[in-house]
């Protein structure tokens, strides 16, 4: 088996032998990513309405569904309606601290069975939660960023925010507010640079998912089909007061 030294040594020798095709450098990065991110967040506090309109347009273009409610208190109503229309009985969701919403308190009285991700890890909790998530018809999550130019929801995994909530159920409901909106991929780059510049945050959550509409394939005769492995439906709920 090759060792790191052998392989890197070989590559280094070749790199030294090659002059390169032309003078080139990587994309220029923000010098102070955390400050750039903070400045961007301030700017977005002014510009979010246009970004929200674009987000809705792009989300709908990729077959996502947009909802708008005044406050968090109205979100359970949206979920209850979705469940009723789909004959869904069980819901899985992020824990209240991560979501800003207590799903069990608000949905169980309506007759839905609700599993909420426990904070922290552990083998038995993992297996129990996986079973619940795999059996649930609706998965409810928050978001970290909502990218307007592509209608994309970006979710960082973490404690109480399992990665499968937005993956296993057939319907994914994501709750977001104006503070999550970004305009461009370039801005997502600034946010990710800032996240990694922060020693603590750079180590929290082992997965970041960009989700652009429901799961799809065109592998059989190029016929577009939704819900291959991931959700068949993606609902983004914008909460004005968030």
């Amino acid at each position: 088996m090759a060792t790191r030294e052998e392989m890197l040594g070989r590559i280094r020798r070749e790199v030294r032998r090659a002059p390169g095709l032309f003078a080139a450098s990587p994309a220029p990065r923000p010098a102070h990513p955390e400050e750039a991110a903070a400045a961007l967040r301030r700017e977005m506090m002014e510009r979010w309405p246009a970004a929200l309109a674009r987000f809705q347009e792009e989300l709908e273009r990729v077959a996502g569904v947009f909802h708008r409610v005044a406050s968090l208190a109205e979100v359970p109503g949206v979920i209850r309606d979705l469940a009723r229309q789909r004959g869904a009985r069980s819901v899985v969701g992020w824990e209240p601290a991560a979501l800003g919403l207590d799903l069990r308190a608000t949905l169980e009285p309506a007759g839905l069975s609700v599993t909420v991700a426990p904070p922290g890890g552990g083998e038995s909790a993992r297996l129990a939660h996986r079973e619940a998530a795999a059996g649930a018809q609706i998965g409810v999550t928050g978001v970290d960023w909502a990218l307007a130019e592509t209608g994309t929801l970006i979710l960082v995994s973490g404690s109480g925010r399992p990665r499968s909530t937005s993956l296993l159920p057939e319907t994914h409901v994501a709750v977001f507010g104006k503070g999550h909106l970004l305009e461009s991929l370039e801005q997502v780059g600034i946010m990710l640079e800032a996240l990694h510049a922060d020693a603590a945050r750079s180590l929290s959550g082992a997965m970041i998912n960009f989700i652009t509409g429901p799961s799809r394939t065109a592998d059989i005769e190029l016929t577009l089909t939704r819900g291959v492995h991931g959700p068949k439906e993606v609902h983004a709920v914008f909460v004005e007061a968030l």
């Binding site: 990729v62 991700a117 426990p118 904070p119 922290g120 890890g121 552990g122 909790a125 993992r126 939660h129 996986r130 995994s157 973490g158 404690s159 109480g160 399992p162 990665r163 499968s164 180590l203 929290s204 959550g205 082992a206 997965m207 970041i208 998912n209 960009f210 989700i211 652009t212 509409g213 429901p214 799961s215 799809r216 991931g230």
Partner: peptide, 17 residues
């Protein structure tokens, strides 16, 4: 539809991965 950024194995405080 999905761009997945894998940042190492599951972190201790995480349930899944």
């Amino acid at each position: 539809v999905y761009t997945t950024l894998v940042r190492g194995p599951r972190h201790p405080e995480e349930l899944e991965g």
